[in-house]
Design a binder for these strands. Structure first.
Length: 877
RNA sequence: GGGCGUUUAGCUCAGUUGGUAGAGCGCUUCCCUUACAAGGAAGAUGUCGGGAGUUCGAGCCUCUCAACGCCCACCA
């Protein structure tokens, strides 16, 4: 008892969280058993980058996953939540290169091997940092199964998949225009390119004809690429240029001769209707060039600088793209080849990682042929094997999949899975294999794979794949659900689905639960550069982990809207945690001498039955909502139940019942039972506080709440009649309190009441009278005939009952009449609406019978109340 | 250009088979009632973005307009 008596009045989140997490870890409660007979529930974490620092987005994502894991663990499933991290190719390489730069070195100074060594060192040192941070979130993932996208097993899976796809002809190598980041010095994929609107110019440049007067004027946004021009293109149906097709022009500045060709791609209405073709540096031009068999000319190198080649004038060579543009325009002006400059806003591609302007560059890269793979990935979603929640993301996913483009998977980096292709040093012959066939004569392709290639295998590479016979694979694959934000549907979700279907024949998960993104209070994306980030660890320090979890959960809507957060919002969860703490404290302090007997349903009070019935309904609703991923709804239901029903009403009534020796023991049982169950219901959302309190409950059924059974709906706890009766009692108390407030009756003054109405004694029995005495500060309650005219009293009408509060000299008659009139007015208004419907023949003939019945009953009730109040007013006047 | 989302109380937002609107914060009044002032009690507050339609009945369904936000596409 001493422990309980000494519980602080304010919930100490920090101590509790540390203590409870340790308790779970020490007892290995997070560990999933692949030999269990229970049905499996499994999930893989979206692996955070090794370079990552925990942010609010993780906090939300991890919390939702943890809620699902904890719920299923309690609800009879063998639950596995598998954690891990992503090697994050470019991001990690950037970090290590930055370090080197500070030492005045580049990765080339170290060489590939040394650089990789250093990067591994860095990754190993940081690999667990972010998952350790997740501990602060209460994450119940199974660390014994922690994986890394670049570990041995995942690397094996990557090789297996690459080779199989290659053998199937679904991976190919070729020269195509790719998005090239001059800063990362690597190709990136389409989805890694973001477009931004920029103000630029449209320059019109005149290309004179060869051997004759005149010129053709083209329009371009990138004059510096002109040195790579191989043709001028016009639309074949454009009468303006019809006669020019086939002619040759001499390029300004260099004088190089190029032909005028016709291609339907050209838009007659844009610019001058004539277009320069630069196949090496523009994706559309590349296509045009291919159609016309034009040889591309490279004029920009991988660093984004102008090449030193004969096609580029010496003044331009070596300049950056930006410098070259200025210089080129200058030179054109001098030559009077510049016809016009028009301001022009257009979209410019940027590297998702470093925000550098993308250079479309023709280069030799590896690609995955997506269309054949997409077929099944589309079918799986269409036929319901995979369900998106909210559903609208399906459309988004399908739209992308149906217009899928090949996936550029090679990156000119060092940190990542090196492509398992080997070239013969002399013949150049290529072998795709897991190992180098002959290290003396073959050299491995220097490129590495896109990070998302390995993440795409995550749900099965972590379960043992390519071995499909491991215990984990058999028990836990496919996984149950994938929880993530919509921002990586294309990057990740889509790839897992395609790869999963192709390599395991099964959808890697049956549900994709997409939640909103965390934003700041103004609705802006949080980012370090904007300085509007909120550090979840700081929130946890200030408000507690469970407060953070509860608040975020409560903000999740069914539609998956983005979530705006601000520091103060977490007070909501903190206050709730404190409420739980104190209510529990009260209950625990009042369990002295409690026996181990079950609740005695034969000797149970109205309030007992009511709270059990309510708990039962809540358990039902929570289970239903969690199955439908309406997690925010659960938070609201539980908040409302715990605070507004259990604390505000049941615990207050229990205080009265505990003083009655006859019902004390049973009250203790009910009080404890409901607390126990409420804590279990809350545990997935608020794990620490519930575990802590559970540990203090005497004679409990389970050693830890994390492994307790989740409450379910039970038929024996249905008390519909008592539920209704209790509602009337609550309403009575509320209206009596209203009377007190209206007449400024000090809490220290007790009032007498007279109750009238049919069978009033049945509802307002001794138990209920005792509630009224305490909760409405009633001195004496008596019963009387309703026809008695109340003078000098305030009256309140509840259901079929009239409760009179004689107020002697306290009463201000006028005020009471006014009060009653106001109420009457309200009732009149409400009734008018109901009557309008009931007097409408169409309503009567069309509405569902139960709706009509309901409306009628309500109208009757209102009429009754109206009559009573009218009568009252008459007697008062 | 195509698609999606949002618009409800002063603020932030809930509201799914269509039955006549809710929460938290804030505000007003009262209360340190032996779990909790991070608390308790009683209140006030809405032409549910505009318009039209379907329906007996619309915050919810249809159309349309407006504002804001996002995604995809990429005409140089």
């Amino acid at each position: 008892m001493t422990i309980i008596d000494n519980l602080p009045t304010v919930y100490d989140a920090k101590t509790t969280e540390e203590e409870m997490y340790k308790f779970w870890e020490e007892n290995e409660y997070f560990k999933a058993d692949n030999k269990s007979n229970k049905p499996s529930f499994s999930m893989v974490i979206p692996p955070p980058n090794v370079t990552g620092v925990l942010h609010m987005g993780h906090a939300l994502d991890e919390t939702l996953q943890d809620i699902l894991t904890r719920y299923h663990r309690m609800a009879g499933y063998e639950a596995l939540w598998l954690p891990g991290t992503d090697h994050a190719g470019i991001a990690t390489q950037n970090v290590v290169e930055k370090q080197l730069r500070q030492e005045g070195k580049s990765r080339f100074d170290l060489g590939r091997e040394k650089f990789l060594e250093k990067t591994w060192e860095w990754a190993n040192a940081h690999k667990s940092a972010i998952l350790d941070q997740c501990k602060r979130l209460g994450a119940s993932f199974d660390r014994s199964r922690e994986r890394f996208t670049f570990d041995e097993g995942c690397s094996e899976a990557v090789k297996e998949v690459f080779i199989k796809l290659y053998e199937k002809g679904l991976i190919y190598k070729g020269a195509y225009i790719v998005n090239w980041c001059p800063r990362c010095q690597s190709a990136i994929s389409d989805v890694e390119t973001e477009y931004e609107t920029e103000d630029g110019n449209l320059w019109e440049i005149s290309y004179p004809f060869k051997n004759e007067a005149g010129a053709i004027v083209i329009a371009t946004t990138r004059p510096e690429t002109m040195f790579g021009d191989v043709a001028i293109a016009v639309n074949p149906t454009d009468y303006k240029y019809k006669d020019l097709i086939g002619k040759t022009v001499c390029m300004p500045l260099t004088g190089r001769e190029i032909p005028i060709i016709a291609d339907e791609y050209v838009d007659k209405t844009f610019g001058t209707g004539a277009l320069k073709i630069t196949p090496a540096h523009d994706p559309n031009d590349f296509e045009v060039g291919k159609r016309h068999n034009l040889k591309p000319i490279w004029v920009i190198d991988g660093e984004g600088k102008m090449k030193s080649c004969p096609e580029v004038p010496p003044e331009i060579q070596g300049l950056t793209r930006e410098e070259a543009r200025i210089k080129t325009v200058e030179m054109l002006e001098v030559q009077q080849a510049l016809v016009k400059i028009t301001p022009h806003t257009h979209n410019v591609g940027k590297c998702q990682r470093c925000h550098t302007t993308i250079e479309p560059l023709l280069s030799e890269q590896w690609f995955v042929k997506m269309e054949p793979l997409a077929k099944e990935a589309i079918a799986a979603v269409k036929d319901g094997r995979i369900k998106f929640i909210p559903e609208r993301w399906e459309k988004n996913y399908l739209g992308w999949m149906e217009n899928i483009r090949d996936w550029c998977i090679s990156r000119q980096l060092w940190w990542g899975h090196q492509i398992p292709a080997y070239y013969h040093n002399e013949t150049g012959e290529m072998v795709v294999a897991k190992e180098n066939p002959d290290p003396e004569h073959y050299t491995q392709d220097p490129d590495v794979l896109d990070t998302w290639f390995s993440s795409g295998l995550w749900p099965f590479s972590t379960m043992g794949f390519p071995n499909k016979e491991t215990e984990d694979f058999k028990k836990f694959y496919p996984t149950s659900v994938l929880v993530t934000g919509f921002d990586i549907i294309f990057f990740w979700v889509a790839r897992m689905i395609t790869m999963g279907l192709e390599f395991t024949g099964k959808a890697p998960f049956s549900t994709v639960y997409i939640h909103g993104l965390i934003r700041d209070e103004k609705g802006q994306k949080m980012s370090k550069s904007k300085g509007n980030t909120i550090d979840p660890v700081k929130i946890i320090d200030k408000y507690g982990c469970d407060a953070l979890r509860f608040t975020m959960t409560s903000l999740c809507t069914y539609g998956g809207q983005d979530i705006k957060v601000s520091d103060e919002k977490f007070e909501y969860g903190r206050n709730f945690a404190n409420k739980i703490w104190n209510a529990s404290r009260f209950v625990l302090m009042n369990l002295d001498g409690i026996d181990n007997k079950p609740i005695d349903f034969a000797n149970i009070t109205l309030a007992d039955k009511w709270i059990l019935d309510r708990l039962n309904t809540v358990a039902k609703e929570v289970n239903e909502n969690i199955k439908n991923y309406r997690i925010g709804e659960i938070a609201h239901i539980l908040y409302d139940f715990f605070w507004n029903e259990y604390c505000d009403w049941y615990v207050e009534i229990a205080k009265i019942q505990l003083q009655d020796a006859n019902i004390k023991a049973n009250t203790q049982r009910v009080m404890k039972y409901v607390l126990d169950m409420a804590l279990r219901l809350l545990h997935p959302i608020m794990p620490h506080i519930t575990e802590k309190i559970y540990s203090l409950i005497p004679n409990k059924d389970f050693p830890a709440i994390i492994r307790a059974d989740y409450p379910k709906f039970e038929d024996k706890l249905v008390f519909t009649k008592e539920n209704k009766e209790m509602e009337l009692v609550i309403e009575t108390i509320k209206s009596l309190r209203n009377v007190r407030q209206s007449f400024n009756i000090s809490p220290s003054i007790k009032v007498n009441i007279v109750i009238s109405g049919k069978d009033a004694e049945t509802l307002y029995n001794n138990d209920v009278i005792s509630y009224l005495k305490r909760l409405a500060r009633v001195e004496n309650a008596s019963f009387a005939n309703s026809n008695e005219a109340p003078k000098k009293s305030a009256t309140t009408v509840v259901g079929d009952y009239k409760i009179i509060v004689p107020l002697e000299d306290l009463i201000d008659l006028k005020a009471e009449i006014e009060r009653q009139n106001k109420k009457l007015e309200k009732l009149n208004k409400e009734k008018a609406g109901l009557m309008a419907r009931l007097n409408n023949d169409k309503f009567l003939s069309n509405a569902r019978p139960e709706v009509i019945e309901e409306t009628r009953a309500k109208a009757d009730e209102l009429t009754k109340q109206e009559n009573t109040i009218e009568e009252l007013i008459k007697s008062l006047s």
